[in-house]
């Protein structure tokens, strides 16, 4: 499986910080995150629940809930900063350039409308010049592309299984030929066999359409199987960011290292499975210093006082840990 990553950077996120207003305070949910996404690249965004993965993705599309605020940073796409766009301009970017499959979206299909109507609505909403007949043809094309026979277009969501509904969601996300697809936990509720089918489909679409994909997941196995690059998040910050091989085989951040040891690996059934003591921090009770320091087996004095910067281990591999700073 060769990554087909082109050189062209589609999306470039710098210093992105997001907070939620709560009782007059701003609780930091995402802080100072950087990443790049190239054409045809599959980026895995990994972390435990509450680490800010979904917030980060919603802020790229500026779809944060009312209490959410983007406090700093830029999101460059096609030569412009998406954070500078007006709401009208932004609504053109959404779906047409960057589409998102929301977590649990396959259960959010309208139960009383046939799937064709739901997909063609997405098409015609973004391009009023498309006729009804053209939209129908496009829906058939999209369904075939995701592996559903076109004659099922008149069926209702309840007539599809979970995996098939997720395919419908992918078809809908691709309706306006986006360059970037964000998929938030797209296989979490599915069986492993159906998960494998969906992941295979994403890879095929990347191949065929040159689509760049951001895969948000807590499943380290899924990331290892299909991603080119990985961004590991902890407590709203980047823990480690690099290509998939370096993150899995030369992880430098103690969180990444331990998370990998906590994940069952069928190819090493005799390895000891560890758990990381404690639990992920809450936004309203963030520890001082490095956010992982209370659970970190390698923490020393400084980790509890200062927040480490994002240090470069080597070209294309960064981590937010003082242990790295010492080595460079």
């Amino acid at each position: 499986m060769k990554p087909v990553t082109g050189q062209k950077t589609l999306l470039s996120v710098r210093h992105l910080s997001v907070g939620y207003e709560s009782e007059g305070k701003l609780l930091p949910a995402v802080e100072d995150v950087h990443f790049d996404l190239r054409e045809g690249e599959v980026l895995g965004l990994v972390g435990e629940s509450g680490c800010g993965k979904t917030t980060l993705m919603l802020s790229l599309l500026r779809l944060l809930p009312v209490a959410g605020r983007i406090t700093r940073g830029e999101v460059r796409f096609g030569g412009q900063d998406l954070l500078d766009l007006s709401e009208t301009e932004m609504s053109q970017v959404r779906w047409r350039d960057i589409a998102m499959i929301f977590q649990g979206a396959m259960n959010a299909l309208n139960p009383v409308l046939p799937v064709e109507q739901q997909i063609s609505e997405a098409i015609r909403r973004h391009d009023a010049s498309v006729s009804a007949a053209q939209a129908t043809r496009r829906v058939e094309e999209l369904l075939e592309m995701v592996g559903i026979t076109a004659n099922r277009k008149d069926q209702y969501p309840f007539q599809f299984s979970g995996g098939m509904r997720q395919r419908v969601m992918i078809a809908m996300a691709l309706a306006c030929r986006p360059q970037v697809l964000i998929a938030d936990e797209p296989t979490t509720a599915l069986d492993v066999m159906i998960q494998a089918q969906i992941l295979e489909l994403l890879l095929e679409l990347r191949e065929r359409l040159g689509l760049a994909v951001i895969l948000v997941t807590h499943d380290l196995g899924v990331v290892a199987e299909i991603c080119d690059t990985v961004l590991v998040m902890y407590g709203g910050m980047t823990a480690e960011y690099s290509d998939v091989d370096r993150v899995y085989n030369h992880a430098v951040h103690p969180y990444t290292q331990n998370l990998l040891k906590a994940f069952p690996d069928l190819s090493q059934p005799n390895a000891r499975l560890i758990s990381i003591p404690g639990y992920p921090p809450r936004l309203d009770a963030l520890p001082s210093g490095c956010r992982f320091s209370p659970r970190c087996p390698a923490a020393f004095e400084r980790c509890h006082q200062e927040t480490p910067g994002l240090y470069t281990v080597e070209e294309g591999h960064t981590a937010r840990c003082f242990l790295v700073e010492g080595k460079v």
Binding site: V192, A196, Q197, L220, V223, E225, L266
Partner: peptide, 23 residues
């Protein structure tokens, strides 16, 4: 087939997956 599609957390061990079609 079931074992072949369980993701292994190591990109160097990407294997041939036996993907059963349908459900």
């Amino acid at each position: 087939a079931l074992l072949s599609v369980i993701p292994v957390p190591n990109p160097r061990k990407r294997r041939e997956r036996i993907i059963l079609q349908g459900q």
